[in-house]
Computed example of a mutant assay.
Amino acid sequence: MVAKRLIQQLKYGLKNADENNFNEFIEFFLQNKRIFVTGEGRSGLVGKFFAMRLMHLGNDVFVLGEINTPSIQKGDILVCISASGTTSSVVNSATTAKKHGATILAITANPKGLLKNLADFTVMIDTRNKKKRKKQNINDRKPPLGTLFELSSLLYLETLISEIMYICKIDEETMRARHVNI
């Protein structure tokens, strides 16, 4: 079944995200600091999902590129999502944020990317195919482009939100009260 194959591939992508790493990552979001989120393309959409959930939890959160995003300052957090770890807009944002004293959190699949080098903390979601192929066989049952990274990142971040809800004793009713109502 196709769904089972996808789930197996997602498990592979999340296998490096161990429990200690996950708990350390959560700590950044319990500090009640302003949080900024960036990513391009579909990774950017995952970032927006995450930003919305953080807002539902009561965090002061901003998505880079939106017109209401304030300047980043010392002590703020910037979450950068990039499978390649080399996306120029994401790397440039991380570089600038670091100059202003922000903490950089990276979610990437590339341990050698510029983003990992800039980050104060990195979550590795390794969905890259280790076998180098010149051309993907049409019969390969692998989702297109960055699908595995994006879905794995989304699953990881949604799990993080659930854990923060539990730690902070925030129920769905409290979150629903912060949900858009107009």
Score class of each variant (00 low, 15 high):
residue 141 R to W: 00
residue 33 K to R: 15
residue 142 K to N: 03
residue 89 S to G: 01
residue 91 V to H: 03
residue 41 G to F: 03
residue 108 T to A: 07
residue 171 D to C: 13
residue 45 L to G: 04
residue 29 F to R: 03
residue 155 L to V: 14
residue 139 N to L: 10
residue 106 A to V: 09
residue 98 K to N: 01
residue 109 A to T: 05
residue 107 I to E: 04
residue 15 K to I: 15
residue 94 A to Y: 06
residue 155 L to S: 14
residue 70 P to M: 05
residue 151 L to V: 13
residue 107 I to C: 08
residue 53 R to I: 10
residue 23 N to Q: 12
residue 164 I to D: 13
residue 78 L to G: 01
residue 94 A to G: 04
residue 141 R to Y: 02
residue 161 I to T: 13
residue 50 F to L: 07
residue 113 G to L: 12
residue 74 K to S: 06
residue 67 I to L: 10
residue 17 A to F: 15
residue 140 D to A: 06
residue 121 F to Y: 11
residue 137 N to I: 11
residue 153 S to A: 15
residue 129 N to R: 08
residue 112 K to P: 00
residue 178 R to H: 11
residue 141 R to K: 10
residue 7 I to K: 10
residue 44 G to V: 12
residue 88 S to V: 12
residue 94 A to R: 01
residue 21 N to D: 00
residue 69 T to A: 10
residue 174 T to M: 10
residue 123 V to D: 00
residue 146 G to E: 05
residue 89 S to F: 01
residue 118 L to R: 02
residue 74 K to G: 00
residue 143 P to E: 03
residue 99 K to Q: 08
residue 62 F to S: 02
residue 168 C to L: 15
residue 86 T to P: 01
residue 58 G to L: 06
residue 120 D to M: 03
residue 104 I to N: 04
residue 87 T to F: 04
residue 84 S to F: 10
residue 22 F to K: 15
residue 160 L to K: 13
residue 40 E to L: 12
